[in-house]
Computed example of a mutant assay.
Amino acid sequence: MEIFVRGREFVRRDARLLERRLFSVLFEDGDPAGVVDALRGYRNADGGFGHGLEPDKRCPDSTALDVETAFDAMIAAGVRDEELIGGACDWLQSVATPEGAVSLCNPAIEGYPRADHMSEWTYVPSLNPTAGLVGRLHQLEFEHPWRDQATAWCQAELANGLPGEGHSMLEVLRFLEHQPDPGVDAVRAWLPKLSMFRANADDPTYGVTPLHFAPTPDSVWRQLFTQEQIDGHLDRLVADQDADGGWALTWEPPGPMATLEYRGVVTVAALDSLRRNGRLSID
């Protein structure tokens, strides 16, 4: 109970409106429409999302990374706004390669404060974020011509093999879980080869963890990990709550406000993860 109360106070005190509305939906029986209303403030006339919705870059221009963040908020809130999703898909189609691939960001971010890791690599169309966006659209049960085109591109790319980096693999798993054969055995064999994968819960460095790959007990990918591994990362999540009630970051956002905003994101996510895995008492 103390974990929840401290986390709630952090969200109420320091998180931005979007995370406060999402917290209300997840833990206080709040109206999911409030999450959609908050997302509208980040929407651009072109149908995409920007304005630092993903806080590591403060650029107002639409980026696929911000679209992905908007989709994640709707999925977490259990709401599907067809106008927002459809407009975002239209925008994705407008900036995609002829084959349907999109990049995380674009050079417009260089004119605004951004984290050091937000650099040229984010301008390259790739499985990160194309595969993850397609997977999220399947989860939202939203059909669109861009989704079909991007699906074909992802399938062609994956025919050449799985990615070697943890974040890209995370996006690919979002895609594969909605395919007829997700290829669990191939993914299991590939995990030890991944960079930026933090399999050991005692490792304090930044990386993608088993809880990112398999956030819930019924996840397709939970079978990749032992219960001991999952329990270790849940224990670590509990231990990593800061004295102020929020969770700290293992990277450096572009400034104090972005840091607080991202801490709000990860704090709501941490509380939700603990709840969904039976490790959080809120009564």
Rank of each mutant, 00 (worst) to 15 (best):
L162M: 07
G164S: 08
G166T: 04
H167R: 11
E171P: 01
E171A: 13
V172D: 05
R174Q: 11
L176K: 10
L176V: 02
H178L: 03
Q179L: 08
D181N: 13
D181I: 07
G183C: 03
V184T: 08
D185G: 10
V187A: 08
A189Q: 14
A189P: 13
W190R: 08
L191P: 06
L191T: 05
K193N: 08
M196T: 11
A199Y: 07
N200A: 12
N200K: 12
A201D: 15
D202L: 11
P204T: 05
Y206R: 07
G207W: 04
V208F: 02
L211Q: 07
L211C: 01
P217Q: 08
D218A: 12
D218Q: 11
V220W: 02
W221A: 06
W221F: 04
L224V: 02
T226G: 15
I230Q: 05
D231P: 10
H233K: 02
H233P: 06
V238G: 10
Q241I: 00
D242T: 13
G245D: 14
G246T: 06
A248H: 11
A248V: 06
L249W: 07
L249Y: 08
W251R: 01
W251T: 13
W251S: 02
E252T: 14
P253S: 11
A258F: 04
A258M: 07
T259P: 04
L260V: 03
E261F: 07
R263M: 05
G264L: 03
G264E: 05
A270S: 15
D272I: 00
